[in-house]
Computed example of a mutant assay.
Amino acid sequence: MSIAKGLRISGKAVILFIFSVFTIFPFIWMIISALKTKAEIMDVNHFFPETFQWQNFTDVLTDSPLLQYVGNSLFVSAVTLLIQIVTGAMIAYAIVFLTFRGRGILFGVIMCTYMVPTAATYIPSYIILSDMKLLNTFTGLIISNCVSIFGIFLLRQAFMQVPKGLIEAARIDGGSHWKILWRVVCPITKSSFITFGLMNFISCYNNYMWPSLITDSDSKMLVSQGLRKFFIEGGAYGTEWALVMAGSTIIVLPLLILFAFTQKWFISGIGGDTGMKG
Rank of each mutant, 00 (worst) to 15 (best):
L166C: 06
G104A: 09
I250D: 10
F100S: 01
L129S: 00
P124Y: 00
G278I: 09
F201P: 01
I194S: 07
V14S: 05
R183G: 09
E50H: 09
F22A: 14
I251Y: 05
R8A: 13
C146A: 15
V244W: 07
F57A: 04
A78M: 12
M245T: 10
E168T: 09
G247Q: 10
A120C: 08
V14H: 04
A92G: 02
G88I: 05
W29S: 14
I270Q: 09
V79N: 00
M42P: 00
I250F: 09
H46K: 13
I149A: 05
I31R: 07
A92K: 01
N145T: 09
F196V: 08
F107W: 11
I18L: 15
G151K: 03
N145V: 07
F107I: 10
K264A: 11
K164N: 13
T121E: 08
L243M: 11
T37F: 04
A158L: 06
E168D: 15
I83M: 02
P26F: 00
V116D: 08
Y69E: 00
F19S: 14
N72G: 04
H46C: 01
L213E: 06
P49V: 02
H177W: 12
A39T: 12
R8N: 10
N200V: 11
F193I: 03
E240L: 07
G165I: 02
F201H: 04
W29Q: 12
L35N: 07
